[in-house]
Design a binder for these strands. Structure first.
Lengths: 207, 207
DNA sequence: TGCATTGATGCGCGTCGTGCAAGTTTGATG
DNA sequence: CATCAAACTTGCACGACGCGCATCAATGCA
């Protein structure tokens, strides 16, 4: 998406990013292979050929390293959301952003799905995932606030951001609940449905 | 609300509850006094006069013990929600349940506010809080599903539960952002506003 | 080339979290 | 009431964790 900008960062910054990425990928690979419970920081550091102590300069726990991928995905999603034309409403823009991300199917995307699957079978990672999402909620809320030009004290941006991310998370989780093909089309339909619900309002009565 | 039922639990279960409560309250007290970072499991165990090893029979980390109070509060809220008459719509019933809980102002309530304040000034606890909320989301989603008699595969209950809990969390957080009186009335008004937004739908355009 | 900044690494220490094997309390049974 | 099994508490030990600190190496700049 936005990497290897030549003189944007010097050798220093590039090496940092490389180290971080190496640790992130090593953590994910080992976590998938052996399970998070049979995973030590030392193994991750060895796999990435980084000193044990250095690991903690980048991540404060192995869980953080494993889940770091979803942070990247969320950032990409929010960037896409910001890039949508201002004529689109909030939910519309979000829907389009999700579909764009889904149809990219590059490395980041596959890594993201791998992490989500891993989290799905490793409940102990859920807190970490939620922590990452919560951090991104702030960013998304700010983007929403700008889009609708809401007042400072309004709770709408925060609530909308939270609801929308939660809805996406729920749909994705349900989507990989049974054994399914990685049918992006089906997931896209589910996204449309849930966004329609958010738009229509969440109140209901016994039918 | 529903305690000390005489022969509902034998001495065994009662002692377990007492131990758990003692640890929970000791953890909260020390965390408020010294800050979560200057807090060790050993100190908590000593304060509650429980063996260090025994602590881990109840909680797997000090954070879990500190945040355990919000779990109780959420359970009480959901129980109240379930008790609302079925003629009330989902959001209406939730609003009433929140107001009932807010106006109780018993010990549990004060403890809950204390925990929220603590989390508010201790970002490292947010993941734990979200984990607890996520666990309760399932219960609330099930309650919502029963209320509206939704189908099994529907995402509405989960999305609604998540959105509603997130909205409540956001409102409470914003409510204790500046120095305010513990004015339950003001909080009640904010709850009404945010629930009205959820009911009206979350889509918006630049005005 | 010399120098200041910043990251990488090794070391040490206190804490964490848990398996294991006792000892103790509880509730049930005859 | 005596006895027993299940469940809970506790101490012990051990590996892993997370970080402060000092040191070395790499980088960017004048």
């Amino acid at each position: 998406m936005s990497h290897d900008a030549a003189p944007l960062m010097g050798r220093r910054e590039r090496k940092k990013q490389a180290t971080r990425a190496a640790l992130r990928e090593a953590a994910l690979r080992l976590a998938i292979r052996d399970g998070v419970e049979n995973l030590t920081v030392e193994r991750i550091a060895d796999e990435a050929d980084i000193a044990l102590r250095t690991f903690f300069n980048y991540f404060s726990s192995k869980e953080e390293a494993v889940v770091a991928t979803v942070s990247s995905a969320a950032e990409a999603l929010i960037a896409e959301f910001r890039a949508r034309p201002r004529t689109e409403s909030v939910l519309r823009a979000f829907r389009e952003a999700v579909l764009v991300i889904l149809n990219e199917s590059d490395d980041a995307n596959r890594h993201y799905l791998a992490v989500v699957r891993l989290i799905h079978r490793t409940p102990s990672l859920v807190p970490q995932q939620l922590a990452v999402l919560a951090a991104q909620e702030k960013a998304l809320a700010e983007a929403i606030r700008e889009r609708v030009d809401a007042a400072e004290g309004s709770v709408y941006p925060a609530v909308c951001a939270s609801a929308v991310l939660a809805a996406l998370r729920i749909v994705v989780n349900q989507w990989l609940e049974p054994e399914r093909e990685p049918s992006a089309a089906l997931l896209g339909r589910e996204v449309d449905l849930v966004i329609a619900e958010l738009a229509a309002g969440l109140d209901r009565q016994r039918s």
